[in-house]
Design a protein around this nucleic acid. Sequence first.
DNA 1: TCCAATTTTCAGTAATTACTGAAATTATAG
DNA 2: CTATAATTTCAGTAATTACTGAAAATTGGA
Lengths: 183, 183
Amino acid sequence: MNLSPINERFVLHFGEMGSRWGVNRTVGQMYALLFLSPKPLNSDEIAEQLGFSRSNVSMGMKELLSWKLCKLVHKPGDRRDYFETPKDVWEIFRSLVEEKRKREIEPTLTLLRDALMDEAMSDEDRHAQQRMREMHELIELATGWFDEVQHLSPETLENLMRLGSKVQKVLSFAGALRPGNRD
Amino acid sequence: MNLSPINERFVLHFGEMGSRWGVNRTVGQMYALLFLSPKPLNSDEIAEQLGFSRSNVSMGMKELLSWKLCKLVHKPGDRRDYFETPKDVWEIFRSLVEEKRKREIEPTLTLLRDALMDEAMSDEDRHAQQRMREMHELIELATGWFDEVQHLSPETLENLMRLGSKVQKVLSFAGALRPGNRD
DNA sequence: TCCAATTTTCAGTAATTACTGAAATTATAG
DNA sequence: CTATAATTTCAGTAATTACTGAAAATTGGA
């Protein structure tokens, strides 16, 4: 790995973190390398810099593309595939959450909905359904909120975040949280 | 696995999902079983219901306790450890995010801060540091926001979420997003 | 069309992670 | 303190997941 010490530490760290986020070490490293790179890299460059096989890079990049964490670009007069990461960190954050939602939340919601349709055969079932109902409501609320909020511009979002919990004071002052309020 | 069909499906699903969230299949199943259970279960009950070894349950429960996804309770006149999950789904959500923050976000923040302190030795370094600065800012903002918001009561939070992106309209109307505003 | 460059697939193997059973440890009641 | 019930540890093994190299497929230019 012929990276500068700063870059190398970052790449290795993302390798470790990758495994906690459901991608393997090498995929984490590929992402980190591209995140830091000032220009798109092709598969050979990635394989060489990180010291793993060309085929591993192929599989890893396929995964990063599927997570929308990387995109494919081309250079004129060069048939090779080049990869880069979206530059805007907000955009990165958004696609991460969106993909997690698709892969982890949606299947769970489907399961919960199905289970809640089933007829309870016992008190145990009735209790289980009650628990699932609570989980279902929380997930619906949280993802619905995210769906709405993610469409705000990065600046608006940033402002909202900077406001933090103070948002609550402002709103309660404005009466916006009063039950029955329809605005 | 002598569970009712409804419970069994839920347990198996959480086993699969577990692996995507950094815990293994059996740990996911243990959590799901306890989440649905109307009463605390001891290790033998868990091992028997799910069909794995007593020692596996011991290790798995240790992990769930460390994530604060389960807690230990006792029955009078019974020396065995019983486990249960917190009942409030908001509380569950909070501890999950909190633990993720400790284990994944904080180490990354530390790394980023260190790397930003290092002296850049090249243009490549300078570019890498700029990227890291952006990432650092986003993470600080998002976690700071979460820190504040997590202290709101579940009802307030729920109201805020139900408001969704409309929060922005109310606030901009009230002028609360104006730069320089100190409330 | 054919050729060469590039990417993908996949079977085999390496590496990692999960799980078990037996032994060690800890805790409690008598 | 001793006996026993309960839990934890851990070495060994099973199962899973990651990685490679060679071969197949795809792509674009001549």
